[in-house]
Structure formats: C-alpha cells, structure tokens
C-alpha cells in the first residue's frame, strides 16, 4: 500500500510542480514590479490631484492613492505658468546639441581608436578612459568651474554644454563597434578613392545603427538628467534646466507637493519613453563594454 501511495504521489507531483514553480516565479516578479510601479503611480496620481488632497488617500491607505480620483491639471498649469516650459526647451536643446556635436566628436575619436594604428594609441586611450572613471567629478568641478569662469562662460550655453560633450563610455562603444567592421568594406571604398571622412560617413555609419542609437540614448539621457553642473555653472533663470528647476522648487515651494511631482513626472517621462523602445540597443551596448 505504501508503494502504491508513493507512486501516486509521484505521479501527481510532477504536474503540480510544473504549475507551482512558474506561479511562484510570476508572484515574485509581480512583487518586484509593484515595488517599482507603486511609487511611480502614486507620484503620477498625486501630480494630478489638488495639493490639499495629495495625502488624503495615503492615510489610511487605499487604492485611491494610486489613481487620480480628484483629477485636475492645476499643478501642471501652475508650473508652466511659472516658466517650466522654458526649462524643458532649454534641456531639450542642450540634449540635442550634445547628441549631435558630442556624438560627432566621440565617433571620430572612436573611429581613430578602433581603425587606425598610431604611436601612443593605447596609452592615450587608457588615459582618457581611466581619468574619467577614476577622478571624482567634484575634484575636477572646482578647477573646471574656475576654467569656465576664466573663459567668461558662467551663465552661458557654452559653459553648460562643453563639459557634457566628451563621454568615455560612448568613445568606448564606438571604438568597440568600429573595430569589428570587416576590413574589406573599408578597403573597397579606399580603393575607389574615398577619403577617410567619406568612408566613415557613407560606409561605416550606415551599418552602425545599434551603436548610434545606444550612444545617442546615453548622451541624451545623461544630459537630460544632469543636475549638479548646471546648478553650479548656470544659475540664471533663462538657462535653467529641468532638474535644477525641480530641485529649486523644493526649496522655494517645499510644501506644494503636487507641483513638485508634476515637474518630476515630466522629467521622468522623457527618458522612459526614449528607453522603452530602444532598451535592447542600450543593454547590448553596455554589456558589450562591460565584457571587454
């Protein structure tokens, strides 16, 4: 009889386990997702709620805290009336210029490091990459601030822009990708008399979509999210970027939570919308560099 029971148990166990394990996996994943999503949902809902009701459903907690039940655009209207739109335009402008100008500089350098042989190449590459990894931003921030000040670039676009142009991670990406392009492709163009710049532009770049997308995303998001340098170098109202605008609102209008969260939601939605569709490239690029 014992043998009979165990046999039955064994026969039953398999399908049960086959369901149980995935169910457990999904449960744990859902908990993980909730930990990510609940704070964001609450913040989004609160940004659409009148300020005096922001905490109404949080205490005692109910699901209403996660949905904008008292829907209003008041917070958004207020921050835009106070000039939040200006900071969005500023940041978008900065981010796009960084992507194109910085992208060009980094791609050219990446091409040279990936395709050319020249004296001191590896040493130079190590110095450029290592310096940026090792040196804390704060250490260089003071002398850099002084340098920018000597140029008369405090409270100017140049002062905001230039430090974000060179990006070691992006050079790394380009170098890696360009080094793997087959030599025959490049030789063929060279035999036809194309200049190196022409080779880069019409042979290499068209087949480099993944790395271009990844590099563009990295630079765009890091500029969109940049905060301390703009705070330091361009405090003037007309040059404010999104993150600085939000952080200053904490001090000035500390209690107006719905406006603070409305600004945060706008600051959050841009990178989210950008990264979602292109996440694959982003990850590929970063794992690629990590494994080098």
């Amino acid at each position: 009889m014992n043998a009979h029971v165990t046999r039955r148990a064994r026969r039953n166990r398999k399908p049960l386990r086959a369901y149980l394990l995935p169910a457990l996996v999904y449960c744990l994943l859902i908990i993980g997702v909730l930990i990510v999503v609940i704070p964001l949902m609450w913040a989004a809902a609160a940004s659409f709620t009148p300020n005096h009701k922001v905490f109404e459903y949080a205490y005692p907690f109910s699901w209403r805290a996660l949905l904008p039940v008292d829907f209003t655009l008041e917070a958004y209207e207020n921050i835009f009336a106070r000039g939040f739109g200006q900071s969005i335009t500023n940041t978008l402008f900065l981010a796009f210029v960084t992507v194109f100008v910085g992208g060009a500089a980094n791609a050219l350098a990446g091409f040279a490091f990936g395709r050319f042989e020249f004296r001191g190449k590896n040493a130079l590459f190590m110095v450029i990459v290592m310096l940026t990894f090792l040196v804390p931003v704060d250490l260089t921030a003071i002398p850099r601030y002084i340098l920018i000040n000597n140029f008369g670039w405090i409270n100017t676009w140049q002062g905001l822009l230039v430090p974000g142009l060179a990006n070691s991670l992006v050079i790394f990406l380009f170098r890696q990708f360009f080094a793997e392009i087959p030599q025959e492709l490049i030789d063929a163009a060279r035999v036809d008399g194309a200049s190196w710049l022409r080779v880069l532009w019409s042979i290499v770049l068209p087949i480099s979509k993944p790395v271009l997308v990844a590099a563009g995303l990295l630079m765009f998001i890091s500029q969109w999210n940049s905060f301390f340098w703009p705070l330091l170098v361009a405090p003037r109202q007309e040059l404010r970027v999104v993150q600085v605008e939000i952080s200053l609102a904490v001090g000035q209008y500390g209690t107006i939570w719905n406006e603070l969260l409305a600004g945060s939601m706008i600051a959050a939605i841009v990178p989210i919308l950008l990264v979602m569709p292109f996440q694959r490239y982003y990850v590929q690029a970063i794992t690629g560099t990590g494994l080098e």
Partner: peptide, 19 residues
Amino acid sequence: FIAPLLIIHIFVVAIPAVQ
C-alpha cells in the same frame, strides 16, 4: 580624428585634474 575630442577632454578633465 581625435583632435576635437582630445581638446574637449584636455580642458574638461585633464587640466582640471592636474590643477
């Protein structure tokens, strides 16, 4: 090819680091 980046890098990282 490296010059644009190098110039930026020298001013933004190398000189400030040495200073």
